[in-house]
Nucleic acid binder design. Structure first.
Lengths: 216, 216
DNA sequence: TGAATAATGTTACTACCATTCACATGGGTA
DNA sequence: TACCCATGTGAATGGTAGTAACATTATTCA
């Protein structure tokens, strides 16, 4: 059996009408599958169309070009990301500190469980302001971080309270550094004698200690 | 004037013999120029050959494929990187703490001043153990970080001394996170109200505080 | 010195890709 | 019902990675 497809059939050879019905969505899903396998730069637009069973020209009715598809995926990724972080934060329950650590862990969990989104978000070399949706979704995700920081430092005396924006950026970069370098099983740049989760938890604890927010 | 080149001429139209003389090196340099302009995924192998003025098939005598060229560049990048970090560390002079902060700043400076190498090293999606040279050069760079950590925590009492490997990983990921997200002027994922250098210095100071290594 | 040989570059080719254009289809609406 | 327009098709353009057979030059060694 050859793997080639005829137009008018999807990847399983099922027939469909001349019109797909929900091509934009199908393209996004197929692209996610491919990104998970070979990274955001490792697959072709044409491959996506074959997976979906349409002609190579079809996507252009829905996305200006290959990058527009990537931006759509990244934008959706940031939405899911914000959602995952917010869920981990859980309004600071049961207590601010452990909820805070959960947010950091959720960052790693997202990188691990949604490598395709993560790659589209951070490794697709999208021009930053690529899309309004992308920018907004990014800010939503960052907002969760910022909110968690605000809650956590609320109790600190005025003189010892760090700017929450800076703190949020620190947490973001610590999480992101670990996720980028060690977060996805195979692509790690170096073997480490602990899990990324442990590494991040220790990093955040030491950092919070430095801010005078230690547990004990 | 068309920009097209004939074989046997380099980018300035100078003649050369049938043999280039130092093609491998010229390819690396031309690739670095292109990476600086358009990123590691944004240029074609063929473009490199045109810049150098050889036929599209010529590079294959020196590099197995496009990825092999990227690996060579990344490997050389890690060499320069290790050198830059070591120079910043300067054997812990004038004192361990300020030398340590210099190492962190050197990380950012490298990302800023050598975006092409940085991109090849961290954003080219090279399979990690791609080359023996690449692995070794990576370890050399990390070794400088580790050495600096060792020196810095030497004075701490046994019970309070963190594993230097973990500490080195933390410094690496903090630096890398900032460099990735904010380190190169245009590609920043979000505007921030301070320089990446300030952000990193604050992050490292807070972290060291948390370890009980504060200045005062 | 003068082959023989190895190294390095070229041309020509295959197979694939992104994107565009003119055209085909058929769902939705007046 | 008839038309329009969103959506999909096929074919064409011009680009890319990589390979193979051939050309040229550098190197070796008899």
């Amino acid at each position: 059996m050859s793997a080639s497809k005829r137009a008018g059939e999807n990847r399983d050879g099922e027939k469909r009408g001349y019109h797909h019905g929900n091509l934009a969505e199908a393209l996004v899903q197929a692209a996610l599958d491919l990104i998970a396998k070979v990274g955001p730069a490792g697959f072709s637009f044409a491959e996506v169309t074959r997976a979906v069973g349409v002609s190579p020209a079809a996507p252009y009715r829905h996305f200006k070009d290959r990058e527009a598809l990537m931006a759509a995926i990244a934008s959706r990724g940031f939405d899911k990301f914000a959602e995952a972080l917010a869920k981990a934060w859980k309004d600071g329950k049961p207590d601010a500190l452990s909820a805070f650590k959960n947010v950091g862990q959720a960052y790693l969990a997202f990188a691990r469980k949604e490598p395709a989104y993560f790659a589209a978000m951070f490794e697709a070399r999208l021009s930053p302001g690529s899309t309004r949706e992308l920018t907004q979704a990014t800010e939503r995700a960052f907002g969760v971080l910022r909110q968690a920081c605000d809650a956590l430092i609320e109790g600190l005396p005025d003189g010892k309270r760090p700017p929450s924006l800076m703190m949020a950026l620190h947490v973001w970069t610590m999480s992101h550094g670990i996720a980028s370098l060690f977060g996805r099983g195979d692509a790690a740049r170096r073997a480490i004698p602990m899990t990324p989760e442990e590494l991040l938890e220790a990093n955040i604890l030491i950092y919070l200690d430095g801010l005078g927010l230690s547990d004990n």
